[in-house]
Structure formats: C-alpha cells, structure tokens
C-alpha cells in the first residue's frame, strides 16, 4: 500500500503531465488522468472516475479545478486534493507566464505581429464555435431563448455589462424554477420538445 504522500505525489505528476498537453480545453486531459489513476493504479473504477467530471460540470466554477479536488480528495484526502489542484494550476500558470513574457519581448517583430493577428481572427471564430456548442446544451424552451437574446443584446446596446447580465439571468433562472414547478427541472429531460 502506498502512503498518502506517495499517492499525492503521483496525483500531482499525473495531473501535471496530462494538463501540459491539454490545449484550449481542460477536459481534454481527462483520458490521460484516467489512464494514471484507473488503469495503472486501480484506485478507482472506470465508472466512479467519470462520476466526478459529470458532477464537476454541474457545479459553478472552473471545471478542471473541481475535477482535481474531487478526484484528489477521493484518492488521498486533502493532501491529494491539494496536489492534484497544483498539478492543474502550475502548467497553465507557468506556460502562460512564459508565453506572455516572450510575447512582450517580441511584440514589435512584424512577423510575430502578423502571426498573432492571424491567430486573433481564428480565436474569434473559435469563441463563436464555443458559443454554439454551449447553446446546443441548452433546452429549446422559450425561457432559455429569452435569456440568450437578452445576453446578446442588453450588453451590446445598453450600458449594462456582462456581470449585471449574468446575475440578472441567474436570478431569473432561480425564480423560474421556484415559481414554474411544471417546467422540467433537469436540462436533459427537456430536450424533446417540451414547452413552458
């Protein structure tokens, strides 16, 4: 049996190296993490492992951080949670610092400028793609459609910002669930054409 310290060290290293290759989305790292803690160490079953990312998605906050804390805590308690958390934060933090410093040093180079301007345009297309993917998970109900339209046009045309819009939509969501009990509670159950 490994000690908590050994388990924590392994957790840190597994999360760290998996995150090093997770570009654009933290969840890309999950299969590599599963290989470490399920296939190699047998600390969890395949089914139990995947309950944590599913749970993490339903919680407010950064999903990869939820996954690290929940899986780390399950395997090696608070020390495991902390190690896994560091394994998630460090690659993103250190790489971004390096890239930011390099970029500032070469910001005047016309070729770097050109490349970055090309990537910028692509990044807007990718942001738009993420908007579409996010909206595909939203049930097709009148309430959701009103929320989407409000979130596009209120900040675009009025002085209200993203923060006020998010808070207002969150409150509207809570009110809708408290006062419209007939409406389907769970997004997955409401896709097949329910109208509220």
């Amino acid at each position: 049996m490994e000690t908590t310290a050994q388990k924590s060290l392994f957790l840190f290293w597994t999360f760290f190296k998996s995150m090093m290759f997770a570009f654009t989305n933290g969840s890309v790292a999950l299969p590599a993490i599963e290989r470490g803690v399920v296939d190699k160490k047998h600390w969890l079953s395949h089914e139990e492992f995947w309950t944590y990312p599913v749970l993490g998605q339903t919680l407010p906050g950064v999903i990869s951080i939820h996954n690290a804390i929940l899986i780390g805590n399950r395997i090696a308690g608070p020390a495991g949670a902390f190690s896994a958390l560091m394994g998630v934060i460090l690659p993103a933090f250190v790489c971004m610092l390096g890239i930011a410093a390099l970029f500032q040093a070469y910001v005047d180079n016309p070729y770097i400028q050109g490349a970055i301007r090309g990537i910028r345009v692509v990044s807007v297309a990718i942001i738009l793609g993420n908007a579409v993917r996010l909206l595909q998970t939203v049930p097709k109900q009148a309430f959701s459609i009103v929320m989407v339209l409000a979130a596009v046009f209120v900040p675009l045309l009025t002085g209200f910002g993203a923060f006020q819009t998010i808070i207002a939509c969150g409150i509207a969501g809570i009110l809708s669930i408290l006062f419209m009990p007939a409406a389907p509670d769970h997004p997955q159950t409401s896709i097949n054409g329910d109208n509220d």
Partner: peptide, 28 residues
C-alpha cells in the same frame, strides 16, 4: 449540485453565457 437553487442558477446562466459569448464575438 442537486439543489434547486443551483439548478435554477444554471437554467438562467448557461444560456446567458452562450448569448454573452455571441456579444463578445460581435464586439471583437
């Protein structure tokens, strides 16, 4: 994660996040 309040928050905020991303893309 099973509480009604958290589910309600998601019900309003998830579509709003999608809409806000469209707003951000337009501005960009």
């Amino acid at each position: 994660s099973e509480s009604r309040i958290v589910r309600g928050l998601f019900r309003g905020i998830t579509p709003a996040c999608g809409g806000l991303l469209i707003y951000t893309s337009i501005t960009l």
